[in-house]
Amino acid sequence: MNFWKRITMALCASVMAWTVSACTGHSDEKPDGSGDGDLYRTTDEIRADGTVRIGVFTDKNPFGYVDNNGEYQGYDVYFAERIAKDLGVTLEFVPTEAANRVEYLETGKVDIILANFTVTEERARKVDFALPYMKVSLGVVSPDHAVITTAEQLRDKTLIVVKGTTAETYFTENYPDVKLQKYDEYNEAYSALQDGRGDAFSTDNTEVLAWAMKNPGFTVGMEALGSVDQIAPAVTKGNTSLLNWINEEIVSLGEEQFFHAAYEATLADVYGTAAAAESIVVEGGVME
């Protein structure tokens, strides 16, 4: 039954789609505008078309967002603009969500995804990741008068974590003698830290850095702890020409310290100091 319903459904969908597109009159156009079977566009095809389509977030300040004047802004957007400039084409932003980034690439509706895309094994089976341009790990924030700078200092102290985060798993597995105080919500965890119910709070370093900037009296003593996640551009699986172009681009941008400039322009207001830049920015695709 289920099988037949699926078949019927697929049929209905394609018939409807075909009817409507036949009416609107652009039925034969492939997403890549070419006649070949692939859904993606090679670097040459993008150059010939004159427009590169890059998928970015529209509500993830400071990585990809739309400012009060309706302009795209952020660290990912800064890089996207440079890619378009170096390809010599105009840039078309495509608004994407965390839940549809893979689909956008698989259907060739965008050429590149630059949306704070963390490299994971599972995703790497579906899309091709280029070299990383950013990294995320854990950070630990504590009051100025008792700054925690090493994990050893946390021994027998109380560390605040949010349930279900990487921080919870990391400290449970690696530092069993740190007392964990667990909360459901971020704002509860931050209140607990402010009230002195714990000695420090740990979660993603970007998160604690941004919070410490807004809350004087607290310092991020450890900026990069635990396993490091890489953030990289992604292209459709098999689009080697574009993948190679992006990799070469990232390497050559490393020579001019482009991502440090991007950090200064987009992230410094939120995350602060140059030391923080070193725990977030990846230059030339090289992870230390």
Partner: peptide, 9 residues
């Protein structure tokens, strides 16, 4: 639909 037919709505 794009994946099945290449059609881009």
């Amino acid at each position: 639909v794009t994946r099945m037919t290449g059609l881009n709505l």
